[in-house]
Design a protein around this nucleic acid. Structure first.
Lengths: 170, 170
DNA sequence: GCGAGCATGTAATCTGTTACATGATTGG
DNA sequence: CCAATCATGTAACAGATTACATGCTCGC
């Protein structure tokens, strides 16, 4: 790993770069659509985020633009560079970054749940599990689908665990 | 719930408001320190985030400032208003928001892990679990501490699950 | 007395958001 | 032919970040 491989990437940049490596040549529009339809609603997948992001990645030498023409329509597709692939691998396998807790709206709220009465808490749990059931299944591949389900099951398990801890508090 | 209770709050605003309700009267500085030392590194707990945020909450009528003097030193403490308490409860128990997937750097990376060789994957798992063990224990109360551990255990479980799914792919 | 840390902010910057604008292409 | 959607952006704004500035207070 040379010094030039130490290019800091945001989480969104890393994910976008990985998408170009996996699916390139790809247009910014297609990357945007992948983000927009991904099961995590954390990133909106807006044009105002993706187009400037791709320009940044290009300016850093991690991806390269190719003008391509389909029929009479011109479009700009991107492919990754060798540097881009090294930087991405660095980002992907950095254990310090992967281990960071990130952000979860359920976890954020649990910190304050002792302010609720037991009835309010139970009512919330019912509604939460109902909302979980209403989540439309993620249209990814089988493994990612299973992972997604497993993740939500784990979150639900954390909620149950919290309630049982509260009961045995006293 | 009246119309005036429908004040949209960001996640950070909700957490700060809850902190004022739980710990107030409290200074912006103390809120900042709580964020800074919280186990989730998602929010840095920077002055540039907290001070303007508290001003926004005050402008919306959710908290009130009190000038207080300790010795010769003057400080500005905040307490919540009745409206603030209703809005917070609304934010806290909204199942739609709680069920959103949020963001997790491990999950973001797993989407791309089929690009790694089995050896690289195993190496990552070793390093990830080591990094998990190096996390300093969260200095909160017993319940939140246990919850925090449980959460990380669940994440580690998702990682294991992913690897076992990959093995049985073929 | 002085350095560490308390306390309160502001400034410049970065990166995301929604909303707008523009034009090409395709399916019914 | 016309609406939907492909495709490519930009503009205005929101809400974070780091870094800077300023003054007080307490322990050694």
């Amino acid at each position: 790993m040379s010094d030039s491989d130490r290019v800091p990437l945001t989480e969104m940049e890393g994910a976008a770069l990985g998408t170009v490596i996996r699916d390139g040549p790809i247009t910014s529009y297609a990357v945007k659509e992948l983000f927009r339809t991904s099961p995590s609603e954390f990133w909106s997948g807006s044009a105002g985020a993706i187009y400037p992001l791709m320009q940044r990645l290009e300016k850093k030498g991690l991806i390269q633009a190719q003008k391509s023409i389909t029929g009479r329509r011109k479009s700009k597709t991107y492919v990754s560079t060798p540097l881009g692939q090294r930087v991405f691998r660095q980002w992907l396998t950095d254990p310090e970054r992967a281990v960071a807790m990130g952000f979860d709206p359920l976890r954020t709220r649990l910190v304050f749940f002792n302010q609720l009465t037991p009835e309010e808490r139970n009512h919330f749990r019912t509604e939460f599990n109902a909302a979980l059931g209403n989540l439309q299944p993620f249209g990814g591949n089988t493994i990612l689908n299973a992972l997604h389900d497993h993740w939500n099951h784990a979150r639900s398990g954390v909620l149950d665990r919290y309630y049982s801890l509260l009961e045995h508090e006293d």
